[in-house]
Amino acid sequence: MDNVTIIESRSDAAIADWLSAQLAEALDEREGPVTITVPGGSTPFPIMEKLLDHDLDWTRLVVWPGDDRVVPEAHKASNTGKLRDLFEPAGAEVVTLSEMEAVPRFTLAWLGMGADGHIASLFPNTDPKPDEPRSVVRLTPDPLPPEAPFDRISLTMPSLLASDRLVFVIRGDEKRTVLDQAIAGEHDLPVARLLAAAKQPVTCFT
């Protein structure tokens, strides 16, 4: 895959610097809002905290969660609630993911990946496809992750692919193996399906 770049052993601060440079370029190139989608989970939030230290016009940023647990935003498992706590004090807008919401094209789609190859909340059991007609889906992971046993709402593959750039942050040897196999086309897990359909630049921090 000629559009995939792997960058190894970068710190949270270095990844935040890279993300800041991408956002600064987008803000300079256009007027109006810049829209991104970001992941939940434990890995991204420390990076986001460092990203917010950068001097950008946060009032022009619109942040979409790539997925969320179907819980109230005040619940500790809510990605959206955590994103609001981080980004809204800086002036950014945080969107509540809804099946009724029209999904825009993203300047940047930032993703994580599970050891089972899932992206956003598109788990293997949900059989996600690049030609899914819906933009947002509600679904139930099987098996339910014990640390977050909730139904999910998620952007679909076409929504993630409607982006100028895809960015992954993946930590750990087990996940790196799954990623390498996906790039090589050695399995059909959700991450492999997304990468096979991606035409835009894909940057993977490991």
Rank of each mutant, 00 (worst) to 15 (best):
133 P>S: 10
167 V>L: 13
171 R>K: 14
160 L>S: 05
128 P>H: 11
129 K>W: 00
133 P>K: 05
178 V>M: 10
153 I>L: 01
157 M>F: 10
178 V>H: 09
146 P>S: 07
158 P>S: 05
127 D>V: 10
170 I>E: 02
140 T>M: 07
144 L>F: 02
160 L>T: 01
128 P>G: 10
151 D>S: 06
144 L>R: 01
170 I>Y: 01
147 E>V: 12
151 D>R: 07
144 L>T: 00
152 R>G: 06
158 P>K: 10
169 V>C: 12
165 R>H: 11
144 L>A: 08
136 V>M: 10
142 D>F: 04
159 S>T: 08
138 R>V: 15
130 P>T: 03
133 P>E: 13
153 I>F: 03
156 T>G: 08
161 L>Y: 04
147 E>K: 13
143 P>R: 04
176 R>T: 11
137 V>N: 03
165 R>I: 02
142 D>N: 09
132 E>H: 12
180 D>A: 15
162 A>G: 11
162 A>M: 08
160 L>H: 06
130 P>S: 05
176 R>Q: 13
160 L>R: 06
145 P>R: 09
139 L>R: 09
145 P>S: 12
136 V>S: 05
178 V>K: 11
156 T>W: 07
138 R>L: 00
146 P>I: 12
128 P>D: 11
133 P>G: 06
128 P>A: 11
130 P>H: 07
132 E>G: 02
136 V>R: 07
166 L>S: 12
158 P>N: 06
154 S>L: 06
153 I>Y: 00
146 P>E: 14
168 F>A: 03
157 M>E: 08
153 I>Q: 01
144 L>C: 00
179 L>K: 06
144 L>G: 00
162 A>F: 03
141 P>I: 14
168 F>P: 15
152 R>C: 01
157 M>S: 09
176 R>E: 15
144 L>H: 02
139 L>P: 02
168 F>S: 07
154 S>P: 02
149 P>T: 03
138 R>M: 03
176 R>L: 15
130 P>F: 05
179 L>G: 01
169 V>Y: 13
135 S>T: 04
158 P>R: 09
157 M>P: 04
177 T>V: 15
148 A>D: 14
175 K>I: 08
127 D>N: 14
169 V>E: 12
142 D>G: 00
173 D>H: 12
158 P>V: 01
133 P>T: 08
171 R>E: 15
158 P>T: 04
137 V>L: 05
131 D>A: 13
149 P>H: 07
149 P>L: 11
154 S>Y: 07
141 P>Y: 10
157 M>T: 04
140 T>D: 08
156 T>L: 09
158 P>A: 08
133 P>V: 04
173 D>I: 11
131 D>G: 01
179 L>H: 07
129 K>G: 03
177 T>H: 13
156 T>H: 09
155 L>W: 07
146 P>C: 00
172 G>I: 04
131 D>P: 01
134 R>D: 15
134 R>L: 15
163 S>Q: 06
131 D>W: 09
147 E>G: 09
129 K>P: 00
155 L>M: 11
132 E>K: 00
143 P>D: 06
167 V>S: 04
175 K>A: 13
172 G>K: 13
143 P>S: 03
177 T>I: 14
179 L>N: 03
